[in-house]
Amino acid sequence: MTATAVIDSPDARALMRSVGVPLHFGPVDRRLFGMLHEPASGGDARERVLLCPPFGQEAVRLHRFFRVLAERLSRQGALVLRFDYFGTGDSEGSDADGDYGGWMADVDAAQAVLQERGPVVPVLWAGAGLGATIAMSAAARVAAPPARLVVWEPVIDGRAYLASLRERHVETLEASYSLWDPSWRRALTRRPDAFTAEAVGFAVPVPLREAIHAIEPDGVGRDLPCDIDVVADPENAPVRAWAARLGGRVRQVTPLANDFEWTAEELRGAALVPTAALKTLLSLCAT
């Protein structure tokens, strides 16, 4: 099999520009999957946008959101790359291979794809959840950092995030099985080591867990080489306080009500692509 998909008709080219062309990139032993959305007009890109997905079930839940966001940005003249970190989505590897440092390198590899393509126009990174945190960590280390970052509900307190994942894991088990097991909740309360190795369907290997555990508000975004826009729920006081402490690098903090469950297994009437979130991210990602 060859490494790239064949595009062989004008209609197909037009469609691909809108809905994305699948591609594989990265080192041979760390092949990553991505979807590249070219400017729908067929002209040169006005900007380049890299979308960094969140972790685990959150990435599954937000897949459609990121696809629609990418399509809309492409219609506004952007070159957009969505991708999966190693061991996630359609990328090579298993979820047991997940590691924070490797995912930072994956952001760098994805950035290289964008840099290889299109004219020299600003590159913006947008990340959600843990993806926002990974993007901030990577931006401080890569040779060619983005011109700007958009971070939506970044994880700034790793311990709190891991605790929320444990809680959500047990809630998911209780919702999913017809016969819930009371020992699940007892273990959640009484045994700190229970439900730490996996979270809502995805493995959380020890190195990844330790890396997330080490995420603290004072460390996140400390060495940012670019300006950031923060998107957070009005009631997310920790993130708002963190953004205030970052000071001048933060262009603005945009309130966005968190009105859907990021780890939901089923929609249960919720919108697959929340309109307010789409409008907010679109406006912040467009230059």
Binding site: L23, R31, M35
Partner: peptide, 23 residues
């Protein structure tokens, strides 16, 4: 080296998306 996976577009106007995993 084992053969890699391949992202593809196919179907009418290549509107469908998928990933092939070779044997």
């Amino acid at each position: 080296m084992k053969p890699g996976e391949l992202g593809v577009r196919f179907g009418p106007s290549r509107r469908l998306a998928g990933v092939l995993t070779p044997a």
